[in-house]
Design a protein around this nucleic acid. Structure first.
Lengths: 195, 195, 195, 195
DNA sequence: TATGAATGAGGCTTCATTCAT
DNA sequence: TATGAATGAAGCCTCATTCAT
């Protein structure tokens, strides 16, 4: 499998660096190849085309992302706690990788509709995690029973995303983690939380 | 003033149609000119360059937008009511202009950093409306007094934006207005609403 | 006759200023119209097209030029004296009109072959003055009798032209008139002068 | 080094042909590529932009030019002889390459100020050759000791240039070489030659 | 005569992708 | 597998000229 070979990951990582440092529209295949230390043509032994690189970037990084979040969530019992560690870890991962933060919050959004549709496919894993927390929360009586899961999910995802995008656009100047409790509380309230 | 001449608006409207129907990256100046019923060169009597067209589209439409919302809000007393009519009208305007919905929620986001920075300038007007509602709500005791206005604004804007983007990406198949009360309730709860 | 109307000269003079200050390729018709204080379309009531403006600039200015030189030459007796006052006056006219110097020595040379052929037609008047001096000089025994008039004319014109172009390219920093005696002597020697 | 690769010279030569046959302003990059037998994009692997092609044409050809002249001059002893072979060879090279003659005498002069400044840099090599001949001639007593080298250089260069331009504008109809002795004599006289 | 808004043709350059080695 | 030289399609913008007023 190509995805297991070292050059595959090498190219993905190079793409993240190049996109973060040059911007989406200035991330030419030749720049990515140079950053990865391979020839332009070599890229095409591992990826079908440029679009495939971009989607793969998102899939690989987001996969790691969702995996990590599912892992940490598992160690908690209540929906409220799970929501908290989800937000905490989301913020933590992006805080620790500034390049990745720029790429996912700003640059990859400039891609065209086709690519964004495929990115949305990848995002579904994250949305499922949210849905699961919401379902559990309702069942456990933590959240109001008339909660519209789809809308609540949009609130949770939209709020976190907006907060992160603002943070990145402000050049990641302030500390993200200090905002987590307040955001958590806003979202819990939104979901009609009572304990 | 050029902005008052009929051809200015004619070109802006043509741009919205062309971008919505062809996508951001396929919206060539020549297509916009053709749609507007003018020669290519005529575009440049009213706009400095292509970037200027795109920013102007956003500014004109968003300006109308914020103006409309400020207007309808003025007729209401409580922050909760104001928030409701704001969401209602936001949804109503986009529901009535599918092309505009596609352009603002999907296509213009593909623009480069320069254009997006200018678009963000325009968006500030909308964010100020939200802030005003929040401040009034806190002062009136409708919202919890320890509400972080910046985070609450990010929640409100992020949630509405995410809801709208989902709606547009689902090809505007379902009715937006029916979701407004539930979203309104989610956001009110988030703000610690009590009456 | 159009050439006698005030706007004709007004446009010619505007063209000299615009070309000198902006360069040949940046001298748009609209700039010339603005400088002349007329509308773009008015230009075309006095000139067939842009090429006609440029050729007219050269014809009007060069005509004045050759007229002036013929006039001052007439007051002298020997070919050597005539050559001297010709060079003196050529330098004097350009020294007194920096814009004209830039236009004739640098900018109009960027015109295409068609225009340059027509400019050469105008230049013939100047070359005839040189030829006349040379013929008189030979007949009077001042110049060597085996002088090839065509080549000598090329030497005289080429030398003066090169000197002037160097002066203009050096931003007219040094005094032209002080070089006249030395250039005069070089050219007289070239013609085999003896008195 | 790109300049040593065969395609570099191939494109330079194609540019000379295209400019000579179509004129400076009709020498599109695509025409040059076609004449060179390469794709349009290939041009940009060897040249930064169109301006770079034009300057390179002049530098390569003029470099060859000055090199050749320095070479043949070296085999002569007196300044008068050196001046003669310089003129002879200048005429010979252009006589043997009609395209190059058109390009250097007529077409490249239509370029804008930036390009001409860079062309002038290249020309300095030629002017230095002239200066060296003049200095040697004065030291050897062949030329008058009060000769102003700068003005004499302007005479020599201006005269040769004017003669060549006339020849090219007359469509190279007459034989250049037959004029060389007379021009040589004119210039020697101008320099106060005595042997 | 005078205006000036409108026209529309034309070319340099980038960059994803291929393929001979 | 790996290379990297070569390809070629595609679009923004300028500006001389016209013509309805």
């Amino acid at each position: 499998m190509k995805r297991d070979k070292p050059k595959y990951k090498q190219i993905i990582d190079a793409a993240v660096v190049v996109i973060a440092e040059n911007g989406y529209h200035q991330a030419q295949v030749s720049k990515i190849a140079k950053q990865a230390g391979v020839a332009d043509g070599t890229i095409y032994l591992y990826f079908k085309n440029k679009e495939d690189i971009l989607i793969s970037v998102f899939r690989e990084k987001m996969g790691m992302f969702v995996g990590k979040i599912e892992e940490v969530i598992a160690g908690n019992r209540t929906a409220a706690e799970k929501l908290l560690v989800m937000i905490e870890n989301h913020c933590k991962i992006l805080s620790e990788d500034h390049h990745l933060a720029i790429v996912t919050q700003l640059e990859l959004r400039q891609s065209n509709k086709d690519i964004r549709l495929k990115i949305n496919e990848v995002l579904k894993g994250y949305l499922l995690v949210i849905d699961k927390i919401l379902t559990e929360g309702i069942e456990a009586g933590e959240f109001t029973s008339d909660l519209d899961i789809r809308l609540a999910r949009q609130m949770i995802f939209g709020t976190i995303d907006e907060m992160l995008t603002n943070w990145v656009m402000n050049e990641q100047k302030y500390d993200l983690s200090s905002q987590v409790p307040a955001i958590h509380k806003l979202l819990l309230n939104g979901c009609g939380f009572r304990n």
